[in-house]
Computed example of a mutant assay.
Amino acid sequence: MAHASHGQSEEALHLFQQLKGTGILPDEITYIGVLSACSHSGLVSEGQRHFKEMKAVYGIGPRAEHYACMIDLLGKAGLVEEAFEIARSMTIGADVAGWGALLNACRMHGKVEIGECAAAKLAELDSSDSGIYVLMSQIYASKRKWDQVKMLRTVMRDRGVKKNPGCSSIEVDGKFHEFLAADVSHVHSEDIYAALKNIYIHLKTEGYIPPP
């Protein structure tokens, strides 16, 4: 799990083979680590093989977490339709992690219709999550569907959903400075915003169109 969390898929899968060689039977937690490792490195075929092996060889019924790993794996690889089929066909029903992974894949690959379905499912589970609306707005914006972007803003306002403020940090001369969106607490805020405005003007002259 540690290797998988840090993107060290080769090491994680090698340890998995060692584990099986000792005669220790893998359990459902083991397979979350295996599938996560495959997802981090885009090992689609290997992930699919392990997913089938889990039940066929060891009799481990996949849980929502295993399905979420497979949805994430397929989605990142651009196989969004296949990921959607997994989410839609689950007898136990995809959870927030599964539908969230699918929605993020739709953002990555510009899949509007599947994204709308994933967003609707997520809204059923938790309509107050601002991330749903932000991701869907990005999908619409990537296709220049500005009317839908405005509609989502209206829905957020009507439901009282507020976007969590973004936070950035920068290190200057060994000292860290933290900033929130629309933050004016920094001692050099005026200079910072003046510099940002200048950058923005230059970007516009180069034809840059900022996202909504």
Rank of each mutant, 00 (worst) to 15 (best):
V149N: 04
F179T: 08
V149Y: 10
S127D: 10
D173C: 07
L180P: 04
C117G: 00
A118S: 08
Q148D: 15
V161T: 12
H186L: 04
V155A: 01
A123W: 02
S142L: 07
I192K: 07
G160R: 07
F176L: 13
A119V: 05
C167D: 05
L122G: 06
A123T: 15
F179V: 09
P165F: 07
R144Q: 14
L122Y: 01
L180W: 15
M136V: 11
R153D: 01
Y193A: 06
V112P: 00
A118T: 11
V184I: 11
H186Y: 03
M108N: 03
L125F: 00
K121S: 11
P165H: 11
D191P: 00
I114E: 01
D158W: 02
L125K: 10
L152V: 03
E113P: 07
S127W: 14
E116T: 03
S142F: 05
D191R: 13
S127T: 06
R153E: 02
V161H: 06
K150G: 06
I139P: 04
R144V: 04
C167S: 13
Y133E: 09
L122T: 07
W146C: 09
V172L: 12
K145W: 10
A123M: 15
E171K: 07
R107N: 13
D126Y: 03
K175E: 09
F176A: 12
M156E: 04
K111G: 01
A141K: 12
A141Q: 14
Y193V: 06
S137F: 09
V149Q: 10
D126F: 01
K143D: 05
Q148Y: 12
H186F: 07
K150Q: 10
F176Q: 10
Y140A: 08
L122P: 05
I132T: 12
L152F: 07
K143M: 09
V172A: 00
R153F: 02
D173N: 14
I132F: 05
K175F: 00
F176V: 10
S142E: 09
L125M: 15
G115K: 05
D126V: 02
V161M: 04
R157Q: 14
H188P: 00
E116L: 04
V172S: 02
L180R: 08
L122I: 04
S169T: 08
D183P: 12
K163I: 14
Q138V: 11
A182Q: 11
R107I: 05
N164K: 13
D191F: 02
S168Y: 14
D173A: 12
D183Q: 09
D191H: 04
